[in-house]
Write a protein that binds this DNA or RNA. Structure first.
Lengths: 134, 134
DNA sequence: TCCCATACGGACCAGACGGTAACCATGGCT
DNA sequence: AGCCATGGTTACCGTCTGGTCCGTATGGGA
């Protein structure tokens, strides 16, 4: 973890929201659910995010204990970001949020084509129970 | 509903987060789970929020279909805010967020006294199945 | 006539947040 | 010497958000 985690809200729900409601945090976390990713991988997976912002969001997630950052001293450098167990434990909550978001979209502007849920909607045989770190 | 709901993010999870992650929205919504509340009631229940900000948050919630605003033309004026069915449907998600928030608090700074969850942790005989509006 | 309660609305402001663009350090390869 | 890839960082900036303070409209009651 980077810093001793600056003061978060005391109410659990506000704390939870504060921790995951950054502009790209949910999407980033989603891409880490399947295992570690290098920064360059994430950059390629999420071209809409500038690298600076990506690093920023990752560092926030790290500071809040959701993401682990592993540096391999190689040339060229290799840095891997992975979800901690705390980060992984957020998945069901994210799924719930996603499902509610779909419901919300249907309830309001049903004319809009309902987009696929980025958070896995239903898992069959998945292997997200490995490198957990922290 | 106030406005036709300005464009929300397309990804369901981002949409959900955008809709509920205002500074006071979760807490406000919590207080509406049990039924309609007058603005003055909410002001008294949540003294830390200035009335202007309270109205602001309520109007956002209304614009996004989570809250219904009922005006009674009386003197002095009477305005009641209540959760719509869409708003009520968010409760389980908020509970999940709250539980995860507690877990997060314990995982990081367990020395801090774990605060009670503002979102009802387990309900016994509750009557939140009434005025639903929308 | 003045004051009260209710339910706002506008002016103004400071900080957080996200975004662009450019720069930097390392060491291998040619 | 110059270029490449990786993984950053720094400077700067515009917008959004929440916050304070104060004004306003209505009509009842003293």
């Amino acid at each position: 973890m980077a810093r001793p985690s600056n003061r978060l809200p005391v109410l659990p729900i506000e704390r939870a929201l504060k921790v995951i409601s950054g502009r790209w945090k949910a999407v980033i976390l989603y891409h880490l659910l399947d295992g570690p990713r290098r920064l360059s991988e994430l950059t390629r997976l999420l071209p809409e995010i500038s690298q600076k912002v990506l690093v920023q969001q990752l560092r926030d997630l790290e500071a809040h204990g959701l993401v682990h950052r592993e540096v391999y001293r190689q040339i060229p450098p290799r840095v891997e970001y992975s979800a901690t167990s705390l980060g992984l434990s957020l998945e069901p909550v994210m799924v719930a949020l996603c499902q509610w978001g779909q419901r919300h979209a249907e309830a309001l502007n049903e004319h809009d084509p309902v987009r696929d849920c980025i958070i896995r909607p239903a898992r069959h045989g998945v292997s997200a129970a490995d490198a957990t770190h922290e």
